[in-house]
Every structure is written in C-alpha cells, then in structure tokens.
Design a protein around this nucleic acid. Structure first.
Length: 837
DNA sequence: GGTCTAGCCATTTTT
DNA sequence: TGGCTAGACC
C-alpha cells in the first residue's frame, strides 16, 4: 500500500475554538462571502455532513462550489490535498481550478484531487495498479482501440461478426461498466443476450485481454478503482481518511459506477457535497442515473438539501417559459426559478414558423444580422440544435452571408485521426506491450504491410506469447515473411529501435517530431491534396508544441489520452452553433432554438426507445436550451424538413404548447418576417393571434399524439409516408377548426397538390416569380455585407477556402465569387473568405 | 495489397 | 441525400 507523506491527517477542527474564531474573523475580512444570497451562503457554510445543493439553471452554482472550497481552505478545515473535487469534464475541472485560484491563490496548485472522475480514478489506479492486475504504466484505450480489440475477441470466439457487430458488444460492455458490473456480476439474462449466450464470456475475455495488454478503457478507470477499494479495505480506508471533504459537480449526470465509487469514499467521514439539477439531466442515454440525485436523501441519511432558485441570468419571461415547460415533467424534485429583476422592456419568448429548414436558416441569419446592426455581439448569440445534421443549413447560409460563426463540439483534438496515429507511434515506442497502438500504425503510412502480414505477426506473437512489437522485431530476422513485407517491416522495427535508443538522449518533443518525419507520417499528409490536410499538419504541430509542457513522453501520453482538449479560438466575434447537449453550462444574450418539431424535438427515437422517460429527458433538454438565454430566446419550427434526403412535412413540437401564453409572442408571417411572408404554414394554431389554445386541446398537440400512438407505429420522423402522399398532412392542416381560409392557405394547398413528386427545395412554389423574389433578397444581403471594392480575383484564379478547400474561380460578380471547388462543387462565396491557393 | 462499388444507415457524447 | 464499411475485383 502506498503511503503518501502528505497524507498526515490534519488536526481535528474544533468549531468555536480559538483558532476557528480567529479564522472566522479572517473569512469575513476576506470578503468572499459578500454578495451571496442566504441559500448560497448556507450551501457554502454547511461543511459537515452530506449536503445536496439543488442548483437551478443560472443560480450561481459554480460560485457556490468554488466558494465552498475556498471557505473550507480558508477556515483551515482541510488542506488542499485533503479535498476531493470531482467534475465530469476537463473543461469544468479547469474552470473550477481557475476560479478557486482566484480566491486562494497558489493553494489551488496543492489540490491534486481536483479533476474528472476518470482522471482521479487513474491517479488512484496507477498507485495500486498491481492490485488489480495492471502495471502502473498501463495505457488508456480510446473508443477506437476498444472497438478493434472487441472485433478481435469476437473473431477469436468464433462469433459471426456480421450478426453480432463489435459496436453492439461495445455498447453492452459500456452499459455494464456504467452500472459498475464486473463480468461475473452481469445478470445472466443480459449476459446471454449477445451472440447466442456468449455476451458475458466475451466481456470476460475482453477484460482478460486488457490485462495482457496492460491497458484500461475509460470504464475501467472507475470500475477497477471500485474493485480495488472493495478488495482492499486498507487502501479504501486510507483514501477515506485522506479525503476530509468531497464535492461533486453535476451530480445529476453520475452513473451507477460513479455513484458506487463516491459511496465507498464517502462512507468515511460523510462530508460529501453534491451539486446538481435534476431538471438538467440530459445524459440518461449514456448511463446517467437521475435516480442518484432523486434518492440522495435516502442514500445519505441526515442529508441537508438546499435549493438555489434565485436566478441571476434570465429575464422573467424566459424563466416563466422554462419553468412552465419543465413543470410538465413528473420525475423531478421540483424547483421554481425566480428573479428579482423585473424589466418591463424585456422581450417575450418568440415563436416563429417557417416553411422549411432553408427558410429557417435564412430567417435566423437575417435576425442575427438585424441584432448585429443594433450593436449586439455575435459571440453573445447561439443557435442550439437538437441534432448536428441541423447545423449544416446554418453553416451554408452563414458562409453565403459572410457571417462569422463557430461550431462548438465536433471531434475532440485527441480523437482526430492524425492525433491518434501520432499517439499510436509514441505509445508503441514507449510501451512495447501496446499491441493496439502497433497495429494502428504498422501500415500507416502505407508501407506494404497489409492484413496478411499482420495476421502472420499475430500468429507468431501468440505462439511465443510476446507482444506484436517484439514479434515483429524477431520475425524480420527469420524467413517467415515474404521478402517485400520483410524488408518493409524491418524498416519499421529498425526505426522503432532507433527511436527507443533516443528516448533518454533527446527531448521528447524533438523525438516526437523525428518519429513523425522518419516514419513518413508527416510526408503522407503533405502529399495529401484534400482540403483538410493542411489542418491536420497544423494539428500535428500543435501536438508537438504542447508536449513541451510535460516532463517526458509518459506524462504527456497520460495527459493526452485523458484530458487534452481542442482549443477554440476565442478572439473572433462569431455566432455560436452547437447542439443543445453541448450548450449545457453556457449562457448567451440571445438564443435561437430551431427545429421545434415533433420527431426532431422531441426526437422520435427518444420516444420510441425510452417512452415517457425519454420524453421527459427531451423536455429537460428543451429546458436547458431555454435557460441558456439571458435576454431573448427565439424558437422556430419548419413545416417541412428534409430527412435522409426526402422531404417530410412536420408537426410543431408539443413543447411549444407547453409554454405559458402570457410570456410568448407568436411571430406572424405577415408581420416581422414580411420578407418571407410565408410564416404560418402548418402553424394553424398560431394563426390570428389565437396562439396557444389550452394545453392538450390544440390540434397540433392532438396530431402529435395521434402520430406517436397511431397505427403508423414508429412512423418516420415527422410523418413519413403520410407527408409525402397526396395532400397528406398538408391537407389536414387546412381542416383545422378555426383556421381562416384563403391567404396563405391557398398557396400552401397549391403546393400540397403537387407535393408528391416535387422537392420544395427546387421548385417550392411552382411559381417563377416567387423564385425571383427570393433571389433578390439573397442579393440584397450579399451586397450589404461587404463594400464594393475592386474585384480581387478573376476567372480561372486558383483559390483556397477554409471550409471548401481548393477550387477555381468561374465567375466574378463584384465581391461575390462563384467557385468550382475540387471537392465541394460549385459554391458562391464572398471574396473575403478565400485566399489565393 | 490497393481500389472500387454496392449496401447500409442515419440523436445526443464525455472520459 | 451522403458518408462509411465490407467485400469484390484488379
């Protein structure tokens, strides 16, 4: 067992003692408790015993969390190294550290146990690795490695890979690990569910293989720590003593394994404080258990529950909308947000209807430009979508408009192919047992070592019971391989030997550069002509640059597999586009929420797969979206949306009907969006200002219900066949009671009449005049966007565009260029967005 | 061993 | 509709 010299227990804290009183005086003087409301203050000062802080959106949660830590440190209740503070993401951990630093200065550096569940798990596991069958330098596998490993195991067990794909096994194993289940603990029924009864065995085989590879996957970082604690009471005791105070952020996102981990540690002194919001639990699908938070008082008897309901973020309209909506959920502890700031000028929540997703993007783009002209910063605006495919339309539109935007989310830095490849080289060099790393790069760049050769190396390695790297090194000395393969492999193994010899000779970042150059990896991307190749080379450079902060290759690898993030350029003033999930924890002055349609939001799959619980999670997602907004929130839904290529008519989301009428403004097509003039299609219940009829009675809601429960059963998103048939839903809209005939209705009927075969995108009205008018609008926007300086490009010029790559200019019209891109086809873009290639 | 094509699939995502 | 994967083919 490890004994950390820092682990000498601090003296017992005596409330009311002389030291305590003196420190109390200092705390008041320090002023970090100033300006807190009574609940916040209580949450900070209730340091002893279990505490659950139910922190609604925008109620100062982060402040409470960081101040609480500062308070514990400032009052001498614990030393920095005796605090355990757990977050879910590295970003959250970084921010927390940064904010605590503001209160306590350097002391934060002495907080080794501030981090993600996984980072802290890793730290503990490395200290006691041998107790769970690993060595302290075990590798951490990413999902890619995991999948490849599972594929091998499925094959080795003679299971038909087509019927039982590795992905599916991965999700089973993932699920088991989320629930804290070791292979032998998997309920027999579930263990049999995969591959005709082999599921449990495959899980066991996978775990065994991980141990041979001296590797752990993300789930193991928790699961093996739990096992370590359970099987070694003295180790557990040591940590229970060490962690005098424990804090957990985003408690609603914990899964069963994390809960078990926490329970084990908290059984010591029980000073555990969990902060979360059940209404913001949106990760049920990846194992988060809302139950953990709902059951807190039961699991930690005598727990103090503190509700933070005073909101400092949003206007009263936004809060009313969010609260009213979320009140439709049954599984919740119940909080009601309120605000003191009563601004009579505050904008109501806006709801607008558009014809299709293209118009949605156009209208939102216009609205953004309007706000921009009024002096609003783009950084303070965000478009939050349910699914990432929705982003494309906005990106396309913004590129056309020349409106700067950034997409938040997407693949993480270390998940990118080039980063993974580079890391695999480093791993294979440092860790000869890391077969997965070796396999990944053995033929990258292509050096003529295909499946056949790899299979031979595998066989050799298995026969001798040695890792692939060693097997390869031995095989090049034998006659087993074909001459071509043999010399290629020799080149590689010689290189590895050469690099290994230099590990202690030259700096690790310098060595990394040498490896990437000598292996031909850099060259591979230099020769690649695709648009993203330069970016990949930049990423590799960035990777090497970032290595300097670390002492050696090992510490770097540890860091990168666990905590490395892509840096987002923050300097640019740009509109933010992201998924609702990615938006949790952020806030913006203006929030656009497009795509509020049945099937998309709530998403049909959530309803199909998880029924009412799924619906409630979707509703929480809507709640998260609304509560991101400080000043204004604008909701949109389109009557038509393209799903997998074909057009479907859609029904407005039931969530719209769950908003409180007095706080909502329905934007009529003919008023604000006169330019488009078609708002209102399919939005019958929003017509004539008679919006939002009593809940559950409106036709939209009833249609939605019928659709979900109906015989069409599991019908595709938003209406599938019905929408495409003659008339279909469109016809139905016309029959809505109380809907005035004529006007827009005519036009829409017109469309529905020939709707079956035609794509609204191409010939939406069947009327060339309308088409032209649209064109003009487009022109207007383009021209207003940048001044008419002399054309910088001429036809035939070769140019590079950040998003579309290289292309040739085929038409110049002022500052607008038509470019035939090599990969993206013909696009119209502003000249300021391209540079000479 | 590398390239081409038919077939499949299609939320949300952190570590 | 479009991007990815497995298997056929050169």
């Amino acid at each position: 067992m490890t004994t950390d010299p820092r682990a000498v227990p601090a003296p017992e804290y005596r409330p009311g003692g002389i030291a305590a009183r003196a420190m109390g005086a200092r705390v008041e003087a320090a002023g970090y408790l100033d300006g807190l409301n009574p609940e916040q203050r209580q949450a900070i000062e209730a340091t002893e015993g279990p505490v659950l802080v139910l922190a609604g959106a925008g109620t100062g949660k982060t402040r409470v969390l960081t101040t609480r830590i500062a308070h514990i440190l400032a009052t001498g209740r614990a030393r920095p190294s005796e605090l355990l503070a757990v977050t879910f993401t590295n970003k959250a951990a970084r921010e927390m550290k940064e904010r605590i630093g503001r209160y306590v200065g350097q002391a934060v550096e002495g907080m080794p146990w501030l981090g993600t569940f996984h980072a802290i798990g890793t730290k503990i596991l490395r200290r006691h690795a041998e107790m769970v069958g690993l060595k302290s330098d075990f590798s951490i596998l990413d999902t890619d490695d995991q999948l490849r490993l599972m594929k091998q195991i499925i094959q080795a067990e003679g299971v038909d890979e087509k019927r039982w794909p590795a992905r599916q096994l991965a999700s089973h194993i993932d699920g088991w690990k989320n629930r804290g289940l070791q292979p032998r603990e998997v309920p027999p029924g579930e263990a049999k569910a995969f591959a005709g009864g082999k599921g449990g065995a495959l899980y066991g085989a996978y775990q065994a293989r991980l141990k041979t590879l001296n590797a752990a996957d993300f789930g193991d970082l928790l699961l093996e720590t739990i096992r370590l604690f359970r099987e070694n009471a003295d180790v557990l005791k040591d940590y229970q003593r060490r962690f005098r105070y424990m804090l957990v952020d985003e408690y609603q996102d914990t899964n069963v394994a994390q809960y078990m981990w926490l329970r084990l540690l908290a059984q010591g002194n029980k000073n555990v404080c969990c902060v979360g919001d059940d209404d913001q639990s949106i990760y049920g699908w990846r194992g988060a258990e809302v139950d953990n938070i709902l059951r807190f008082e039961h699991d930690f008897p005598g727990a103090l529950v503190i509700r933070l309901e005073r909101n400092y973020r949003s206007t009263s309209h936004i809060l009313a909308a969010a609260s009213h909506l979320i009140a439709h959920n049954e599984s919740r502890l119940g909080k009601t947000l309120f605000t003191d700031s009563a601004d009579p000028e505050a904008e109501k929540v806006q709801v607008a209807s558009v014809w299709d997703s293209e118009e949605e993007a156009r209208a939102i783009g216009d609205e953004i430009e309007r706000l921009q002209r009024l002096g609003h910063a783009l950084n303070e605006m965000a478009i939050l979508v349910r699914a990432s495919f929705q982003m494309r339309e906005f990106e396309d539109r913004f590129v056309t408009l020349g409106l700067p935007y950034r997409v938040i989310g997407g693949p993480r830095f270390y998940e990118r192919q080039e980063i993974r490849d580079a890391l695999a080289y480093f791993r294979a060099m440092i860790q000869p047992a890391d077969d997965l790393a070796f396999e990944r790069i053995v033929n990258v760049p292509k050096r003529g070592l295909g499946d056949a050769t790899v299979l031979q190396i595998h066989a050799y390695a298995r026969a001798k019971g040695i890792p692939l790297t060693l097997a390869a090194a031995e095989m090049v000395e034998t006659e087993e391989l074909k001459p071509k393969a043999r010399s290629a492999l020799k080149g590689l193994t010689d290189s590895f030997a050469r690099w290994r010899a230099q590990v202690d000779v030259i700096g690790h970042s310098e060595l990394a550069g040498i490896i990437l150059d000598e292996s031909g990896y850099t060259e591979m991307w230099q020769n690649d002509k695709s648009a993203d190749a330069p970016g990949r080379l930049d990423n590799l450079k960035e990777l090497i640059r970032s290595m300097d902060q670390f002492d050696n290759m090992q510490t770097f690898l540890e860091h990168v597999s666990l905590v490395m993030d892509a840096e987002q350029e923050a300097g640019l003033d740009a509109v933010n586009i992201m998924t609702l999930h990615a938006a949790k924890g952020l806030e913006f002055d203006t929030v656009f929420l497009p795509g509020w349609e049945e099937g998309l939001f709530p998403h049909q799959r959530a309803l199909d797969e998880s029924g009412r619980a799924g619906l409630e999670e979707e509703r929480r997602l809507a709640y998260v979206g609304l509560t991101r907004a400080k000043q204004r929130v604008k909701l949109w839904f389109a009557s038509n949306r393209r799903v997998h290529g074909s057009w479907n008519s859609s029904v407005p989301s039931r969530f719209l009907d769950e908003l409180p009428e007095p706080h909502v403004d329905v934007i009529e097509g003919k008023s604000s969006y006169g330019g488009y003039g078609r708002g209102g299609y399919g939005a019958s219940r929003f017509d004539q200002g008679a919006a939002f009829g009593s809940t559950y009675q409106t036709p939209g809601w009833q249609r939605a219900q019928a659709r979900i429960a109906g015989p069409a059963g599991g019908g595709a998103m938003g209406g599938g066949a019905a929408g495409r048939g003659r008339g279909g839903d469109d016809h139905e809209f016309n029959q809505d009671p109380g809907r005035p005939a004529g006007g827009f209705g005519e036009a829409r009927t017109g469309f529905a009449g020939y709707g079956a075969g035609r794509s609204p995108q191409r010939d939406r009205w069947g009327n060339p005049i309308v088409e032209k008018r649209l064109g003009k609008v487009l022109e207007g926007q383009l021209v207003t966007k940048s001044d008419a300086e002399a054309a910088r490009y001429k036809c035939g010029d070769r140019v590079f565009h950040l998003k579309f790559g290289n292309g040739n200019v085929v038409e110049v019209e002022g500052n607008k260029l038509s470019i035939e891109f090599d990969r993206a086809g013909r696009k119209r873009v502003l000249d300021s967005f391209v540079q000479p290639a």
